[in-house]
Write a protein that binds this DNA or RNA. Structure first.
Length: 331
DNA sequence: CGCCAGGCGAACA
DNA sequence: TGTTCGCATGGC
């Protein structure tokens, strides 16, 4: 295991943990808010894989601590240091107060901000984000997680994990899973980790194998996306150079990718703030919060969504989504 | 059990 | 340009 660069966390030198000082960051809300689907809560920490690196993150009083638990043998993603990877992925340099200051000043937005203090947007890897949201259509978030977990377990590159970490996992995790009677094959591997499978890897699997990951009718969409990206028909690494509208057109050329999924990728992987994914939850939020006891036409709602929340509309959208989905689920 | 889930595309008018 | 419907699968 390589030692991480950057300031080490005092008192945690043995584990190689480093501390990122940051305030106003709710790690749990951010990692568990339906933007990304690979983070797991393990005791008081969050574990996930990023560009082939297996990280454990913790919210601390001063910020966020990070440990590297293992890495895939081959190079995944850009050649940056681990700390740079995390800094970019977690968007630690974003001034959240400055972003929130640009939100529209109305009662619904104020309520959402007050309820979701510290919620952030991640900056994910485009390929993983694209596949994840192709698999998201008409699926609940828990199911999306299961699909993606199976996909990685079956086709992703294994990540060697130190024996000490492995033992900790098998004890804590399996006990909890067994108690709930939910020990599935894909959960048994909780002491193993896998990188997200590359486009070229998935381009070579069969639709049947993808369907075995329980992604149903989305399987041919994932396969087509993998083949298009692997063959160079769509260069995900260069999409960030395009304006949002042009990048959206490119993404929507893929079968199974419509406006909503394209906007999720534009927002969560490319940081395009003028992307505003409107799903059932956001539609519900907009209708209930801004048009109570009225019945806005779809066009009216779309125009409102596209004009009211600038210039950080995507960020505002995530606050509304998280607000209505998790903080007032009953009603 | 029926309903719905961070939708999309084909088939229609 | 605007609805309607089928699509896999599983949680509640």
């Amino acid at each position: 295991m390589t030692r991480m660069d950057a300031t080490e966390y005092p008192g945690a030198r043995d584990s190689g943990a480093i501390l990122f000082p940051v305030s106003d960051y709710d790690l749990a809300a951010t990692l568990d808010s339906g933007q990304a689907f690979r983070w797991r809560a393990v005791d008081d920490a969050w574990e996930g894989i990023l560009a082939g690196n297996f990280f454990r993150l913790r919210q601390t009083t001063d910020g966020i601590s990070a440990e590297l638990l293992g890495s895939a043998a081959s190079q995944h993603g850009p050649r940056t240091t681990h700390s740079e990877q995390l800094r970019d992925y977690l968007q630690l340099d974003v001034d959240l107060a400055a972003v929130i200051a640009t939100f529209p000043e109305d009662a619904p937005m104020r309520a959402a901000v007050a309820a979701c203090r510290g919620l952030r947007l991640l900056r994910q890897e485009p390929w993983e984000c694209l596949v994840s949201f192709i698999c998201s259509s008409t699926k609940q978030i828990v199911q999306i997680r299961q699909i993606i977990a199976r996909l990685c377990e079956r086709f992703g590159e294994p990540i060697p994990v130190a024996a000490e970490v492995r033992r900790l996992h098998s004890n804590a995790e399996r006990g909890a899973q067994k108690a709930k009677g939910k020990l599935e094959p894909s959960d048994v591997g909780s002491d193993r980790a896998f990188a997200f499978p590359s486009a070229s890897r998935l381009a070579g699997v069969s639709e049947t194998e993808l369907r075995a990951c329980k992604m149903g009718f989305r399987a041919p969409y994932v396969l087509a996306a993998a083949q298009t990206v692997a063959s160079g028909g769509l260069d995900l690494a260069r999409l960030h150079l395009l304006a949002t509208d042009e990048a959206r057109v490119k993404l929507m050329e893929l079968p199974g990718v419509g406006r909503k999924i394209a906007d999720c990728v534009l927002l969560f992987a490319y940081g395009k703030q003028d992307a505003f994914p409107v799903d059932v939850w956001v539609r519900r939020a907009l209708t209930e919060l801004y048009f109570p006891h009225r019945r806005p036409t779809p066009q009216r709602l779309e125009r409102f969504a596209n004009t009211h929340f600038e210039p950080n509309a995507g960020f505002a959208q995530q606050y509304l989504f998280h607000y209505v989905r998790t903080l007032r689920p009953k009603k």
